[in-house]
Nucleic acid binder design. Sequence first.
DNA 1: TTGCAATGCGAACAGTGTTCGCGTATAACC
DNA 2: GGTTATACGCGAACACTGTTCGCATTGCAA
Lengths: 270, 270
Amino acid sequence: MATIEEVGGEGRRARQRRATMRELKVASLDEVREHGAAGLRVRSVARRVGMSAAGVYRYVSSREELLTILIADGYHDLADHLRLAGRGEEEGRPPDSPVTDRPAPVVSTRAPAAGDVAERARAVALAYRRWAIDHPNEFALLFGDPIPGYAAPAEGPTTQGMRRVGAAFAEPLLAAWREERLRVHRALSSLELGEALAPMTDDAVGLGGSGIPPAVHALLLTTWGRVHGQVTLEVFGHHDWIFPAGCEPLFEAEVEALLTDLGLLPEPAQ
Amino acid sequence: MATIEEVGGEGRRARQRRATMRELKVASLDEVREHGAAGLRVRSVARRVGMSAAGVYRYVSSREELLTILIADGYHDLADHLRLAGRGEEEGRPPDSPVTDRPAPVVSTRAPAAGDVAERARAVALAYRRWAIDHPNEFALLFGDPIPGYAAPAEGPTTQGMRRVGAAFAEPLLAAWREERLRVHRALSSLELGEALAPMTDDAVGLGGSGIPPAVHALLLTTWGRVHGQVTLEVFGHHDWIFPAGCEPLFEAEVEALLTDLGLLPEPAQ
DNA sequence: TTGCAATGCGAACAGTGTTCGCGTATAACC
DNA sequence: GGTTATACGCGAACACTGTTCGCATTGCAA
């Protein structure tokens, strides 16, 4: 008897393997959500999927690889949320990539942000914070302590995910720039960053090539940093002793300030 | 014979205890510097000071307490560096507090920043980044992954240290505000933060009480966030794949932009 | 059917943080 | 002075970790 007719181009063994691989990721993600990255125990993951601890190593070479996978996945999830909030055109990640079963990103409670570029930029910034607050342990996994010796492989999945995050964050700003509505700060104009930062929005992200001048590129990065700084301080608890009631108003005000600095909101009368 | 004459008001036993306590801190700090916070091993610390692992627990209740001590100490060290860079009047921390032997903060390679308030603010921002880059593992200890369940005691040493960092960071900006040179962003003016954030610069820090309006307070926080975000992204390696050559120019440009936004530098001709 | 590779498991190893019980040296008290 | 209580340090042990190894078993291909 010849080989059993394969379903979907792969034998049932490969199918099974991918299924338990996904199980492992889901279990790991749950563990991280519950106990943080440092609290991820290989034995717990194994127990969750009904395996022995040793069995896990048939699928993953080390605990660190498990974390790396979660990191890459986390970037993609965050990027999806940002894209959705900013109404980018790219239709999600490639369908075989979202290996972890995450709930599909839901439109933020805030405004739909369909039209104006300022609204879209605001929506993205708020979505960034929203995701961080809703997934603090994953946020810490992505942006917290780096593994001391570890550097992400230059073109590994984590770097690609990160690129998608950057692109999703930058998209409304780039749209504003195309409409010539983006005010680039003078201090950045004189910057000569050379070709070093070209890769951020190029290739495969669908933002339209490398016609972006360095000053705009720099502006994207500083804008991201401005939002990220605020979010990091809040999510990591460094504002707890200042804002027992939560610092959402401060963040939203800072976003408004940021948008006006970018020239996307009318300058208020002095 | 009566009790041996005590030296400095404490018996030699207490003196010995404090000495080995300091030894423990130094050893721990070295370990953290070398292997990161996650790599701090009680047994390594014990080996470094020539003790058994169990002996360490005569001085410290847990590994986590060791880390907590280092955190508090780190805040003070960072605050000292900022103060020195910003030329604050407070003469260092109280002399019994600096339990860890750290090299005395050295004046930044940058300008002395004695006079103008803009220079002082710039110096503080650059010092913030400098310290982070020079002490990446300590920076991660202070601002990286929070211990999932853990919240710093409301008035513990870590909170006090954090307050000193905030105060040192804010000092030049507050000076500018007193000189009525600080431009408070309109988006922050409408903010009603109430009494929630009063404690940041009050009590014992020596910045002159609570006469600071909420909008200025908010501006201090967002300014800190703006600097912190950039530094965090850089130190934690999230700019590596964009800036193989280092992103110092970007940071310095962003600081210039920040200073002009604050009204401390003349607006460049459009 | 035979053979090979994939898969899973239990046991083991080195390492971790932490506790316990034992001595010993030091300080305080009479 | 002697006596007593306390602080200190240590080795052994416990429960736990990530990871490896050898042995079965199972599924697939020739």
